[in-house]
């Protein structure tokens, strides 16, 4: 029983990362209407930016701010330089372009930082026992930061003018235009927000594991799975599905082994989609 709880706890932390990545994907899909395969590498970019900042200033808080900023900047640059120019093309064109952007980011990071793994310098701490579950203060802090970031994103999305406009554009772009909303402006805010989420997620993942050019890319598959599972375009769905996937993967690890836990993600997705083709929180009409 304690073992199970332990796996659940580990799964929640893992699930928060998946959920953040899935949130960045689903926001872009809902508003810009394509699956952004560069999301993972935007995370990696944030992780490296945070790493550089931490090494320079020896402050994790500053590193976090830099990671957020770097993610936002690289996402906005991708929009301006690539995605905006392809607006109106097919989803496949944009998907392929985003794969290209992903390779670009990864290649630049590889050239600048090399292929070796790097780690954040964080103090080693002893795990605490909560109801028999071992939780390290580091994992707790990472989880708190992620939850706080998610709360900020949801507050912006649901309680502010720009969030309202984002959801309006996601629902009906033409109607938004006749309502005086400028979709291009909304798009800028969207990319800044999705990039910031990705950048912070990348750094948190880097603190928990390692920083390497591949780490974000490897998150992409579970993140896409969570975005689809949550009902594509649904922000709360993406986060909850991410948590579900993280927990399912960790809980199943003792039974299927470490190497196959990724397959569990797909089993879960398959199961849910058979029952609810539009995902947990999706409506088929929202996919166009």
């Amino acid at each position: 029983m304690t073992d199970l709880l332990q796996h659940v706890a580990n799964g929640v932390v893992q699930g928060l990362f998946i959920g953040m990545a899935a949130l960045a994907i689903t926001l872009v899909f809902g508003i810009a209407r394509f699956p952004n395969a560069a999301t993972g590498d935007m995370m990696t970019f944030g992780a490296y930016a945070g790493l550089v900042a931490q090494q320079a200033a020896n402050s994790l808080v500053l590193a976090g701010a830099v990671a957020i900023l770097a993610g936002a900047v690289v996402a906005l640059a991708s929009h301006w330089l690539v995605f905006r120019r392809l607006a109106g093309r097919s989803v496949v064109s944009l998907l392929v372009a985003s794969i290209g952007v992903a390779f670009m980011i990864r290649a630049v990071l590889g050239v600048v930082f090399g292929q070796a793994q790097a780690v954040f310098q964080v103090p080693l701490t002893r795990a605490q026992l909560y109801w028999g579950v071992r939780v390290t203060p580091l994992n707790l802090q990472i989880s708190q930061v992620v939850v706080a970031a998610l709360l900020v994103v949801f507050a912006v999305l649901y309680f502010t003018p720009i969030g309202r406009q984002m959801r309006a554009v996601a629902d009906d772009r033409d109607l938004a235009r006749v309502s005086g909303i400028r979709p291009e402006r909304v798009m800028v805010a969207l990319w800044l927000m999705a990039g910031a989420v990705a950048g912070l997620a990348g750094m948190m993942l880097g603190i928990k594991t390692v920083v390497a050019p591949e780490v974000g890319w490897e998150m992409l598959l579970p993140a896409f799975t969570a975005a689809i599972l949550g009902g594509i375009g649904s922000a709360p769905g993406a986060v909850l599905a991410g948590l579900l996937l993280g927990v399912a993967q960790e809980v199943s690890t003792p039974f299927v082994g470490f190497s196959y836990k990724i397959a569990i993600a797909f089993l879960v997705m398959l199961g849910v989609l058979l029952v609810r083709p539009s995902g947990l929180f999706g409506r088929s009409e929202s996919v166009r």
Partner: peptide, 18 residues
Amino acid sequence: REFRNLTVRQNLLAAAPG
């Protein structure tokens, strides 16, 4: 047409840009 996932009130608020 309406912003289908927004409430009626939010539909109106969305049309107050600037």
